[in-house]
């Protein structure tokens, strides 16, 4: 069983503020979806997990300098910019 507190905890981990209404709705939906996920408990066969499907291993490229984005291009989509830098929220109070 998933409690309303569990839903708030997941929302906090995911850094998404949710309303009380949303929390109630998600709790109900998550319960049936997680119940559905729990079907996997029936799988007993123990095999190696597949993280990715192609037999690729350690794909490296030459470490060569190349032109990246200009400062102007990199900052073009940011709302808060100061002196040519991104401006973010406070991390330390």
């Amino acid at each position: 069983m998933l409690s309303i507190e569990d839903v708030y905890k997941v929302a906090e981990l995911a850094k998404i503020e949710i309303s009380e209404e949303e929390a109630k709705k998600f709790r109900k939906e998550f319960e049936s979806i997680i119940e559905y996920f729990n079907q996997l408990d029936e799988v007993e066969e123990d095999v190696e997990p597949t993280f990715q499907v192609l037999p690729l291993k350690n794909v490296f490229r030459e470490d060569l300098p190349e032109k990246g984005l200009s400062r102007e291009e990199a900052l073009a989509n940011a709302k808060h910019v100061e002196d040519g830098y991104f401006k973010g929220p406070k991390i330390v109070e």
């Binding site: 408990d41 799988v43 095999v47 190696e48 597949t50």
Partner: peptide, 9 residues
């Protein structure tokens, strides 16, 4: 992890 194992199956 279980899901990744199902993926192998």
């Amino acid at each position: 992890l279980k899901a990744l194992k199902v993926r192998t199956l």
